[in-house]
Amino acid sequence: MASFRIALYQPDIAGNTGTILRMAACLGVAVDIIEPAGFDLSDRNLRRAGMDYLEMAALTRHVDLDRFEEWRLADGRRLVLFSTRSGQAYTDFAFGGSDVLLFGRESAGVPDHVHGLADARLTIPMPGGGRSLNLALAVAMAAGEAMRQLG
């Protein structure tokens, strides 16, 4: 199991979350979901996207941001936020084994107070001019880079 983790802040789309859980199960990466989610975690779309990998996924649900922060700080983990509002490319960042890679809601990202909690803020450059990437794709790119760096 990889030592870094992926966290989803109040995800909106069950299919994206299912895809992320499937990818994380295959790569051995734990996932934290900061609730409330915009869907029921037993949603049919979540199960369809995650297929039979959901049982393999190392998933921790946090009832809210405060409980997530209590856990993260007690565990000594750095919070690395991915945001379109950052100027630092994720490929120019040195990931650590205790990092939590945080991704915001598909519809709205994360609120300003969550930005304030982050130890680092990173972006995936989009030289083609797009506004944002699909959440599952962005998580896969970030996880791949963290795994490449950490071996």
Rank of each mutant, 00 (worst) to 15 (best):
A7M: 06
R105V: 07
E55G: 12
R44N: 09
D92W: 01
L101I: 11
H115K: 10
R48T: 14
W71E: 13
A140R: 11
E145Y: 04
A89N: 12
S107G: 06
D119S: 13
D119F: 05
M147W: 08
R105N: 04
S83M: 03
V63A: 15
L65P: 00
S107K: 12
M51S: 13
M147D: 11
T19A: 15
R85C: 07
A138I: 10
A120W: 01
G116A: 13
L54H: 04
T17S: 12
G151F: 00
H115M: 10
G28V: 04
V80F: 03
R105D: 01
R85I: 00
R47T: 08
D75F: 03
E69L: 15
T17N: 02
L73W: 11
A2W: 08
L8S: 08
I20W: 02
P127G: 11
I6R: 00
G38L: 04
D12F: 02
G97Q: 12
G97I: 00
E106D: 01
G144W: 02
R44Y: 03
G104E: 05
L46P: 02
A136L: 08
L65R: 03
E145T: 06
P36Y: 04
L122T: 07
L137G: 10
M147F: 06
F103V: 07
E55P: 00
A2H: 14
R67G: 09
G144Y: 06
F95L: 05
R5F: 02
M126D: 05
T84S: 12
I13K: 05
I13N: 07
D99N: 10
L59R: 09
H115R: 14
A58F: 01
G128R: 07
G116I: 02
F103G: 05
L81W: 02
S107E: 14
V100G: 14
R77W: 10
M56L: 15
V114F: 02
T19R: 11
S132K: 07
A30L: 04
D112W: 01
S3E: 13
Q149C: 05
R131V: 12
R105W: 01
Q10S: 08
T60I: 03
A49Y: 03
T123C: 15
M51F: 04
S86N: 09
V29K: 10
G38A: 05
S86V: 00
I6N: 00
N45I: 01
I124E: 12
R67M: 09
H113P: 06
G15V: 01
A120S: 14
G28D: 02
H115V: 05
R67S: 14
E69Q: 12
P127E: 12
Q88C: 14
G128M: 03
P125H: 10
D119Y: 06
V139P: 01
R72F: 02
G104Y: 03
P11F: 02
D119L: 09
P36S: 09
G76M: 07
L117S: 11
F4I: 07
A57R: 05
R148S: 13
F68N: 06
G97K: 14
M1V: 11
G97C: 10
A140L: 08
S98N: 15
L79G: 09
E55H: 13
V100Y: 11
M126T: 11
D40H: 12
G38E: 04
F68T: 10
G15Y: 01
P36E: 10
D92K: 14
G18L: 09
V63G: 07
